[in-house]
Write a protein that binds this DNA or RNA. Structure first.
Lengths: 124, 124
DNA sequence: GACGGGTGACTACAGATGTCGTCATGATGT
DNA sequence: ACATCATGACGACATCTGTAGTCACCCGTC
């Protein structure tokens, strides 16, 4: 097991940009995160931390220094979900789903979609 | 909104004991957490932090010093869920559910139960 | 060919977190 | 009562997080 790195809240914000907008420069990341009102240095620091954690990779081509995700989103989502479930629901998924569904205001369309997934998921 | 306190990972472990086993002494908490291999001091510190955060209350009766949860489990579960969804799924519940359901190995019984909840869940 | 803007590297620093120690006091056993 | 043990109060300290500053270097411009 290659023990995934821990990604903090703010780092998640950065990761989402990197995942969604392919390889980009730190300046681009800052732009995409403008609503966060972070100083460019702050974003840079987060990027550096992600690089040192191995979640993001860099490629230096003449002129530009690009950042790209090295860990697929799905992988981290899964890890994060697992640790969340472990923390809050003792790892039991069913009660968690009950809670979410009861708590969510789902549209009928979403309800239908979820049912379809349930049909598919039961007998994997 | 009365801004709930932040409960860290380790603190959650302690909270679960306090919720599940009513008012108890710090020593009892340590016993219940024996698989965590924490020194009693560590547990004590966590309890103190929870007390100062207002998540746990104390009652001092002759002879014993008891700890009991002051914030209902449900409240914290809800908060934690919300912040998790915001972080990982941008607050969108439906995709999160899709992920969970697809990822979980649900028994047919659980699937049936969830469907029932879905039927009920559209609007409360 | 020096100069300023963008950006990587290094540094800072306060607050949260994980883990644990010391001390004094109150409970307990003999 | 005295020695002992458990435990609340207070402290410690390394690491992680959030947020950001300074320095130095590369690039294109004048």
């Amino acid at each position: 097991m290659k023990s995934l790195p821990e990604i903090s809240d703010s780092e998640w914000d950065v990761m989402k940009i990197v995942w969604d907008h392919g390889p980009l420069t730190s300046g681009d990341v800052v732009k995409h995160l403008s609503d966060r009102h972070w100083k460019p240095r702050t974003v840079k620091t987060l990027l550096s931390r992600l690089v040192s954690k191995g979640a993001v990779g860099t490629s230096e081509e003449p002129g530009r220094f690009l950042y790209a995700a090295k860990i697929p989103r799905e992988t981290l989502v899964r890890q994060e979900s697992k640790s969340f479930l472990a923390r809050v629901f003792d790892g039991a998924i069913a009660p968690a789903l009950v809670h979410f569904i009861a708590d969510a205001d789902l549209s009928p369309k979403e309800v239908a979609e979820l049912k379809k997934i349930l049909d598919r998921g039961g007998k994997s």
